[in-house]
C-alpha cells in the first residue's frame, strides 16, 4: 500500500483520501436514509394523496438533503432531513392549492379557527376511539383521519407523536414558533379524536 502511495502524485493522493472519506460518509448516509425513507414516504403519501407524487417528493428531499446537509454532524441529520421534507411538502401543497383554486369555490373546507376549544380538551381516562377498532379497519380510519387534517396540523402530529421530536426540534423542522407547534398539535389531536369517534 505504501508503494502504491509512493507512486501517486499529490492530487491523486488527495483524491484517494477524498474517496475514502466520502465512502465512509456515504455508508452512514445510506444507513440514515434507509432508516427514514419509509416513514418519509408515509408522511409524503398522507400529504400528497398519491404514492407516485410521494415518491417524487421523497427523492427530491433526499437529493436536497444529501447535496446541502451531508457534511453536517450525524445527530443533526434527522431534523435537517425532515426540515427539507417538510419544505418540499409545503411546496407541493402550495402548487396543488394554486392548481385547484377554482375547486375551492365549490368545496370550502372548514376553517381551523372555528374549532371549539372545549371540544379539544382530552379525556385521558377514555381509552379512545382507535382501541375499539381492530386491524386494517383501524388503519383505514386513521389514514382517512390523517388525510383530512390540514398539512401543518398533520406534520405537527407526525413529527411530535410519530417521529418523537420534542417541541423545539419540531418548531425548527416546521420553521415556526414552539407556540405554533403546540397549537397545531392540539388542534390535530382534537380533530383526529373527533374524526375517529365519528368513524365508529
Amino acid at each position: 500500500m505504501a508503494e502504491i502511495a509512493g507512486t501517486m502524485t499529490g492530487s491523486q493522493l488527495e483524491f484517494a483520501r477524498r474517496v475514502d472519506a466520502t465512502s465512509t460518509n456515504q455508508r452512514a448516509l445510506d444507513q440514515f436514509l434507509r432508516g427514514v425513507e419509509r416513514r418519509a414516504l408515509r408522511m409524503a403519501e398522507l400529504a400528497c394523496g398519491s404514492r407516485d407524487d410521494a415518491l417524487d417528493v421523497v427523492q427530491d428531499a433526499m437529493c436536497a438533503f444529501v447535496k446541502n446537509y451531508a457534511a453536517k454532524p450525524e445527530p443533526d441529520w434527522a431534523p435537517l432531513f425532515h426540515r427539507v421534507l417538510d419544505s418540499r411538502l409545503n411546496d407541493f401543497h402550495r402548487r396543488r392549492t394554486v392548481r385547484n383554486r377554482w375547486l375551492a369555490v365549490f368545496e370550502r373546507k372548514e376553517d381551523d379557527d372555528t374549532l371549539d376549544p372545549i371540544e379539544q380538551a382530552q379525556d385521558l381516562q377514555d381509552p379512545g376511539p382507535l382501541l375499539r377498532l381492530a386491524g386494517s379497519e383501524a388503519g383505514k380510519a386513521l389514514d382517512a383521519a390523517l388525510k383530512a387534517l390540514p398539512l401543518r396540523q398533520r406534520q405537527a402530529f407526525l413529527l411530535r407523536m410519530w417521529e418523537g421530536f420534542d417541541v423545539a426540534t419540531t418548531a425548527r423542522v416546521m420553521q415556526c414558533s414552539e407556540g405554533s407547534v403546540k397549537t397545531h398539535l392540539s388542534r390535530a389531536l382534537a380533530a383526529l379524536r373527533r374524526a375517529l369517534e365519528d368513524h365508529q
Binding site: R38, R39, D126, G128, L130, D143, M161, W162, E163, G164
Partner: peptide, 27 residues
C-alpha cells in the same frame, strides 16, 4: 428519535395510532 418511543403518559389511542403507522410502513 422515532415512533417506537411510545410514551406511557400520553393517551392510549395516540400510542395505538403510532403503532398503526409503524405497521403501515412495515409492509
Amino acid at each position: 428519535m422515532n415512533g417506537n418511543q411510545h410514551s406511557n403518559d400520553r393517551p392510549a389511542w395516540i400510542n395505538r395510532s403510532t403503532q398503526l403507522l409503524d405497521d403501515s410502513v412495515r409492509d
